[in-house]
Simulated scan of single mutants.
Amino acid sequence: MKVILAEDQGMLRGALSTLLALEDDIEVVGEAENGEQAMQLIRQKQPDLCVLDIEMPLKSGLDVAEAIKAESIPCRTVIVTTFARAGYFQRAMKAGVQGYLLKDSPVSELAEALRKIFSGGRVIHPELAFTLWEESNPLTEREQEILRRLAKGESVAEIATLLFLSQGTVRNYISEIMQKLEAKNRIDAVAIAESKGWIK
């Protein structure tokens, strides 16, 4: 099977590539250090599988998985991450990801998971299965957008202008967000949403 590795940490990417190449039935046909590069390689090399880190520059692993699904590219996707966050996991499932594994798993486990996924199965790390029971994201798309902008330090006036809303409407959204997240203030709301992987 042909595999592309997308991981922004060079040392880890190199180690994974070297170890996977020792497997007789796995060929690493490309390595990417960011999500944009991963998409280019996927289109060029047409791999069977793509192993994606979540937190990468330019495009996250989840952005890449969503793009693969949107473009109907026949490439199975596996997320390998250090983050056992409910929001990330739920987004990955929506994007049609076939594997969701933690980085601290041994490479032999990753190779075995890739084989299962290649033959049509789905592999989810047991620790991550618990996140299915966690609460789902209570924020609407618009509320997430406003919270992301608050996280960047944009003011109510700036958000209102950029989203073509009145300042009063933006304040109402913020108050609704704080209620839903039981947050003490805006900074607290951003921190809660980020810790659960509900905004990125």
Rank of each mutant, 00 (worst) to 15 (best):
L41N: 03
S105V: 13
K103M: 12
F118H: 14
E23S: 10
S17K: 02
V170N: 04
I174V: 04
L22T: 15
E66K: 15
D8M: 08
L139T: 01
P138D: 09
I159L: 01
L181Y: 01
I177Q: 07
K180C: 11
V28L: 03
Q179I: 08
H125I: 06
N34Y: 01
K200R: 15
A160I: 03
A32P: 03
L58C: 13
K152I: 02
L181S: 09
L150W: 06
P47H: 04
E7Q: 11
M39F: 04
L20H: 01
A113Q: 04
A160D: 08
N137K: 04
L110P: 04
A160M: 00
L163I: 00
E182T: 10
A65V: 05
I73K: 09
P126V: 04
A113S: 10
E112P: 06
G197T: 01
Q37S: 14
D104T: 02
L58T: 12
D63V: 02
V156N: 03
S136G: 10
L110K: 06
S17Y: 07
S60W: 07
V64P: 03
S60H: 01
E71W: 13
K116Q: 02
A193K: 02
V190K: 06
I73R: 08
V107D: 02
P74R: 12
W198H: 11
E182K: 12
R149S: 08
L20Y: 00
V170A: 02
L139C: 04
V64S: 03
E194K: 14
G35M: 07
N185I: 02
N34S: 00
I54Y: 01
S166P: 07
W133H: 12
L16E: 05
L163W: 05
K196N: 13
S72F: 14
A183E: 00
A151K: 06
A151N: 05
T161H: 09
I146T: 12
L102W: 04
V97A: 10
D8H: 09
A160V: 01
T82W: 08
S136Q: 15
N185Y: 05
M1F: 11
Q9I: 14
D53I: 03
K69I: 05
G61N: 05
T131E: 03
P47Q: 06
L52Y: 00
Q98C: 11
D48I: 10
G168L: 12
T81W: 12
C50P: 09
G197M: 02
V78F: 06
A84C: 10
I174S: 11
T169I: 05
A129D: 09
F130E: 11
E33S: 15
P138C: 09
T18S: 15
E158L: 07
L139E: 02
N137H: 08
K200H: 14
I192C: 11
E194A: 13
A92E: 10
E127K: 14
H125P: 04
I42G: 08
K103L: 11
L20Q: 02
Y100W: 07
I192L: 13
R186S: 14
V123T: 01
E194N: 14
F164A: 12
L181F: 08
D104Q: 01
A129E: 13
P106V: 07
E55T: 11
L20A: 03
S72Y: 12
I174R: 00
V3H: 04
L102N: 04
A193H: 02
